[in-house]
Design a protein around this nucleic acid. Structure first.
Lengths: 233, 233
DNA sequence: ATAAAACCGTGTTATAGAGCACAAAAATAC
DNA sequence: GTATTTTTGTGCTCTATAACACGGTTTTAT
């Protein structure tokens, strides 16, 4: 069911697909420069304050980008799915990471030195536009998120997170179960609330038959209602 | 004291300065395509949901980018000072505005059709990198802001806003007074709190001699203490 | 297999900050 | 110059949600 191992050629294929803008020479250049790194569940990929050196591409697995705030509370900023790029923003901004990243699940990451990427961006406009588009999308999401997290109430925020997880990682074959199994704490950190409130609100949702919970497995039953709750806040 | 009128040539100069990457031909192209628009105090520049058509460059004045959330509450996302570009994110992301923009003060804005900009970005890599850098910086700020607004307490958020305004618009000649005069409501919308709490917290700061208030004039007296309050939340 | 640690669930309490209501002052309109 | 609207300031109440405590359960380590 789950692919146990990814061959080198499959990786190159994924990347080649993403790097469609590149010409033959540039692809070769890239193929010579990337390395593969595997991360265990919960393993940290990079930390806040570190200097970015590589463009990261999630080949396989699930990753969270988060930020530790005041009083040990952590906020999940975004989540990464295969095959998405991350870890490059800080480099382009000319600073260090303001976020940290860790693996939700065992993950395989392709790493490309940022200088190599920068060189390619300089000579390939389509690639530059790829980054412009991606950054623009992420910035829009971030702006939306700021308002949602600050203004919506707990139920709205949790409903939003559940829908967000569905959009990000999809559902299992049954068409209902979220295909990511998060701890209550991660769910809380995604929704800007305490763990207890995540637990409570989640069971409320279950009582109201909006979802069904079985440990970390969450089935979305009444998605329309969840959308409504998310919308009105 | 305040420049009453800006000549056409001054505008072209400002823009030429920002568009350093461009060659002679490209500058000419640009000079043929821009238009100037003036906005009154509090006038809306663009609205959420509208389709972006122009790159906007604030020549003169002060602008807020904000988002209306649930229950009529508004959140100021970022502020623009001369000579900064804005209004282009949504175009690059391929969607409509998710924010709105309005003038804090009478403002002069240079508008360049996005198709013209896109064309230039396609043929000029340095320009593309300019946008990549700007978007990367803004995304970093937005991520920081998300956590600050959600996790810090009122005093921390307000202190942060005051420092943020100083960084954005600077101080007057006395070296203390913020050179932007905001309503308490705007201050509240910047800091994610109600107007009453902005008023209250502001007078607390004044009582504690961290600031001095005279109507909308705010003098930063003990900046170090403000920084500390902002940091610890 | 057993111990230790991490996670889940629930009840209880405490409080930061929202949500009024209302008066005074200032800005704007007429 | 007077009227009207907007902004500022203050006091009071109420509630959403954090904070804490504790017992049961599951996972992980040895």
């Amino acid at each position: 069911m789950v692919k146990k191992d990814i061959t080198e050629s499959e990786i190159i294929e994924s990347i080649a697909d993403m790097w469609r803008p590149l010409n033959e020479e540039q692809r070769k250049f890239l193929a010579q420069h990337f390395t593969i790194q595997r991360y265990k569940k919960n393993e940290t990929i990079y930390c806040e304050g570190e200097t970015p050196t590589h463009l990261l591409c999630l080949i396989n697995g699930k990753v969270k980008v988060y930020k530790d705030g005041v009083g040990g509370r952590s906020q999940i900023i975004r989540v990464i799915k295969p095959v998405e790029y991350f870890g490059y923003r800080a480099y382009f901004a000319g600073g260090n990471f303001v976020t940290a990243a860790a693996a939700f699940e065992p993950s395989t990451i392709c790493m490309i030195p940022m200088d190599a990427v920068y060189k390619l961006v300089q000579e390939n406009n389509e690639l530059a536009l790829f980054f412009i588009k991606q950054l623009s999308i992420d910035l829009g999401i971030s702006d939306e998120r700021t308002v949602n997290l600050t203004q919506k109430h707990i139920r709205g925020r949790l409903a939003e997170s559940l829908l967000f997880l569905k959009d990000s990682y999809g559902l299992e074959e049954d068409g209902f179960t979220l295909s990511i199994y998060l701890s209550r704490e991660d769910l809380a950190n995604l929704s800007n609330m305490t763990t207890s409130n995540a637990i409570r609100t989640l069971s409320n949702f279950a009582t109201e038959k909006l979802i069904a919970i079985d440990g970390r497995k969450i089935k979305l039953i009444d998605e329309e209602k969840l959308k409504k709750i998310s919308k009105i806040g």
